[in-house]
Amino acid sequence: MPRPVQVTYEVFPDAPAMALAAATRFAHKIEQAVASRGIARLAISGGSTPQAMFKILADPSHPFAATIPWDKLQLFWVDERCVPPSHPDSNYGVCRDLLLSKVGIPAANVFRMEGELDPEEAASRYEATIRNALKLEGAESPHFDMIELGMGPDGHTASLFPHTDAINELGRICVANYVPEKDTWRITLTSPVINQGAEVVFEIAGEEKTDVLAKVLTGPRDVDRLPSQLIRPSNGKLLLLLDEVAAAKLPAASVLNDGQPRVGTLEI
Rank of each mutant, 00 (worst) to 15 (best):
Ser36Gln: 14
Gln74Tyr: 09
Gly104Asp: 14
Leu98Trp: 08
Ala22Phe: 01
Val34Gln: 09
Ser86Thr: 14
Gly46Phe: 12
Ala65Pro: 00
Met53Pro: 03
Lys72Asp: 11
Leu57Glu: 06
Gly104Thr: 12
Lys29Trp: 07
Asp79Asn: 05
Phe111His: 15
Ser101Glu: 15
Pro69Leu: 02
Arg96Gly: 07
Trp70Val: 01
Ala33Gly: 09
Gln74Cys: 10
Thr67Trp: 05
Pro119Gln: 02
Gly115Leu: 06
Glu31Gln: 15
Ile30Glu: 08
Glu116Ile: 00
Leu73Cys: 01
Val110Ile: 15
Ser90Ile: 03
Val83Ser: 02
Val94Tyr: 11
Ala40Met: 10
Leu100Met: 11
Ala15Glu: 12
Glu114Lys: 13
Ala58His: 04
Cys95Asp: 09
Gly46Ala: 10
Arg96Ser: 14
Pro69Glu: 04
Pro119Trp: 01
Gly115Val: 01
Ala21Gln: 01
Pro60Leu: 04
Leu73Glu: 02
Pro50Trp: 09
Ala65Cys: 10
Pro63Phe: 05
Leu42Pro: 07
Ile30Leu: 09
Arg112Thr: 11
Arg81Cys: 04
Arg96Ile: 06
Arg96Ala: 14
Val94Ser: 13
Gly115Gln: 02
Gly104Asn: 15
Arg81Ile: 01
Pro84Met: 02
Val34Leu: 08
Leu98Arg: 12
Ala22His: 00
Lys29Gly: 11
Glu80Gly: 02
Val34Thr: 08
Ala122Ile: 02
Lys102Glu: 13
Pro50Ala: 07
Asp71Leu: 07
Cys82Thr: 01
Asp89Tyr: 08
Ala58Phe: 05
Glu120Val: 13
Val94Asn: 14
Leu99Pro: 10
Ala19Val: 05
Pro119Val: 01
Ala21Pro: 03
Thr49Arg: 09
Pro60Gln: 08
Val103Met: 10
Arg125Ala: 13
Ala52Val: 03
Ala15Tyr: 07
Met113Pro: 00
Pro69Ala: 05
Val78Trp: 07
Pro85Ile: 04
Lys72Gln: 15
Leu117Trp: 07
Ala40Phe: 06
Trp77His: 09
Ala17Arg: 08
Gly93Trp: 08
Ala15Ile: 03
Asp14Lys: 01
Gln32Cys: 14
Ala35Asp: 13
Arg112Ile: 06
Ala107Tyr: 12
Lys72Glu: 11
Asp118Val: 00
Val34Ile: 06
Val94Ala: 15
Glu121Leu: 14
Trp70Cys: 04
Ser86Cys: 09
Ser48His: 12
Pro69Ile: 00
Lys72Asn: 10
Ala122Pro: 00
Phe12Val: 02
Gly93Thr: 02
His28Asp: 14
